[in-house]
Nucleic acid binder design. Structure first.
Length: 492
RNA sequence: GGCCCCUUCGUCUAAUCGGUUAGGACACCAGCCUUUCAAGCUGGCAGCAGGGGUUCGAAUCCCCUAGGGGUCACCA
């Protein structure tokens, strides 16, 4: 057990670059980061890329990008270095190999020459018999002479010699002491036939060499932990403190996967979710500040965070709450902040050009302010403001049927056009006055005027404040659009 | 199947040592506001998995059952 008063807290997030950063990984990264920041510790980023087949530099890049986008930084790791590098496992493979062979020399591990096919066949048999699939230990007692001969002849793997008696206890900060009987473990593999270490092995060595004090990771690793503890003990390492945080599950209670829709940080970013909202939401999955407080900025989350308040049970991930939170952030953030983040989405939809003149920016600001009350994502900002930037758009069919396809529609639209003509200056207040005047003159309710106006100007039956909308559009465009629908729908 | 973890409204969660009308949030429903739609405000619906103990008293402690999840890979 570690003596924590004497050393600085050091935690690590160790993704393997075999996919994008998903929501579960992001939450694990977040909890590590919060723990480090809360207690003045250090956050290390390590890349666990010992799976040659599935790891790729592209995935690594998106993971780093996602972490940075979320605002989770690291004190040591890829791209910034540190005193405990290299921070990518594939860059110091000799270390693992050396230690593995040392264990073999000491009789704590041994070479196994069984082929992958033989092993899977044997396991299949055991499964059929209803027995747990275990390695039968057939290479345990090969003589050193025989070993050298076969070693020269072909590839081999290295297995850890598991103790047959006793128990291994994992002291978990969240779950308490968890006891495993040693006899349930078979001689698991620590070095694969390609010479690369397995996760359980490499991880233990790196945690030691990087001086990791707390291993905070998802609960799926709890069952692996005794193996790691056994290795650490055999190697004479200090065992770090563990904290296994609950899993994040899909709404159908299964493990989160592609078929559950957006699961990666990157996808949420593209959907127009704000990092602030995602971080806030993620922090609430398996943790709570202990009071009725849910909307928190990152500083507050750090100040409230503690592992004692992390819950034990898995959390089912509910996108509705994330979306709601995002909407909340969208309408409470500084307007300019929202505008700046919406800009890329507007560009992507080809609503604005790459370069924006200052006066155009001011106009966009007014537009974003107008629509942000009723959208929940940045992407929706683009959709909701489409007709401000384009003159061509669809008209809501039901709306057309209801407000245009009737006697006197053309006349009404013309009257509205004239009324708007009189609004001077062309500002919401004045526009409203003119439309109200028209409503009185025609002796019809204001809504009978507003609805067709909105439809003619935007193609939609709902949207932001009509007067504000008309003002932004401008007198000329408003008149053009009102006239246009008369021809377009052949109104009488 | 073996082992391990978990179990409070549909969902995320609160309830420090056992004593609360079991609290908040999302979602849902209703009302208010209103030029539409939202937003906002107000109110409502809804939960201690089940069964045994221990105790004056249990969501909270113990046991059993059930359910969910994880793991048992030359993946991490």
């Amino acid at each position: 057990m570690r003596c924590l008063d004497m050393e600085k807290i050091r935690v690590r997030f160790a993704p393997s670059p075999t996919g994008e950063l998903h929501i579960g990984g992001a939450r694990t990264a977040l909890f590590n980061w919060l723990f480090a920041r809360r207690y003045g510790g250090e956050m290390i980023l390590r890349i666990d890329d010992t799976d040659r087949q599935r790891s790729s530099p592209e995935y690594l890049k998106t993971i780093l990008t996602s972490l940075r986008w979320l605002g989770l930084d690291w004190d040591e790791g890829p791209e910034i270095g540190g005193n405990h590098g290299p921070y990518t496992q594939s860059e110091h493979l000799e270390v693992y190999s050396e230690i593995a062979h040392k264990l073999v020399e000491e009789g704590k591990a041994y070479l196994c020459f069984c082929s992958a096919e033989e092993l899977t066949a044997a396991k299949e048999k055991q499964r059929e018999k209803g027995l747990p699939p275990r390695y039968n230990g057939c290479c345990r007692n090969i003589t050193s002479e025989e070993r050298e001969k076969r070693k020269a002849a072909g590839s081999y793997i290295i297995r850890f010699l598991s103790p047959e008696k006793g128990e291994t206890i994992v002291d978990d900060l969240i779950r308490g002491k968890v006891t495993f009987e040693n006899k349930i473990f078979d001689d698991f593999i620590i070095v694969k036939s390609d010479g690369l270490p397995t996760y359980n092995f490499a991880s233990v060595i790196d945690d030691q060499n990087m001086n990791i004090t707390h291993v905070i990771r998802a609960e799926e690793h709890l069952s692996n932990t005794p193996r790691q503890v056994m290795i650490a003990l055999k190697l004479g390492y200090e065992v770090p403190l563990y904290a296994h945080v609950p899993m994040i599950l899909a709404p159908d209670h299964s493990k989160l996967s592609k078929r559950h829709g957006a699961t990666s940080v990157q996808e949420y970013r593209e959907l127009g979710i704000l990092p602030e909202a995602l971080l806030n939401y993620l922090s609430l999955l398996g943790w709570s500040p202990g009071e009725d407080k849910e909307i928190m900025d990152i500083k507050e989350i750090i100040s409230f965070f503690s592992l004692e308040r992390v819950s034990k049970n898995p959390a089912i991930y509910d996108i509705k709450k994330l979306i709601w939170l995002n909407g909340h952030y969208l309408r409470t953030m500084e307007l300019e902040e929202v505008v700046d983040r919406a800009l890329p989405f507007l560009k992507e939809e080809n609503l604005i050009s790459e370069e924006i003149a200052p006066e155009e920016y001011e106009k966009i600001k007014i537009i974003v302010d107008l629509v942000r009350e009723r959208v929940k994502t940045l992407r929706e900002v683009a959709d909701a403001s489409l007709y401000f930037f384009r003159d061509e758009f669809e008209y809501d069919e039901k709306g057309v049927e209801k407000h245009f396809r009737k006697e006197g529609a053309a006349d009404l639209l013309n009257q509205i056009s004239s009324a708007l003509e009189n609004a001077e200056p062309f500002q919401p207040e004045e526009i409203k006055e003119e439309l109200e005047k028209l409503s009185k003159k025609l002796e019809i309710p204001l809504s009978q005027i507003n609805l067709p106006t909105r439809l003619a100007l935007t193609g939609r039956t709902m949207g932001p404040d009509l007067m504000g909308l008309i003002a932004v559009l401008g007198k000329r465009k408003a008149a053009e659009r009102l006239k246009k629908v008369i021809d377009l729908f052949n109104l009488a």
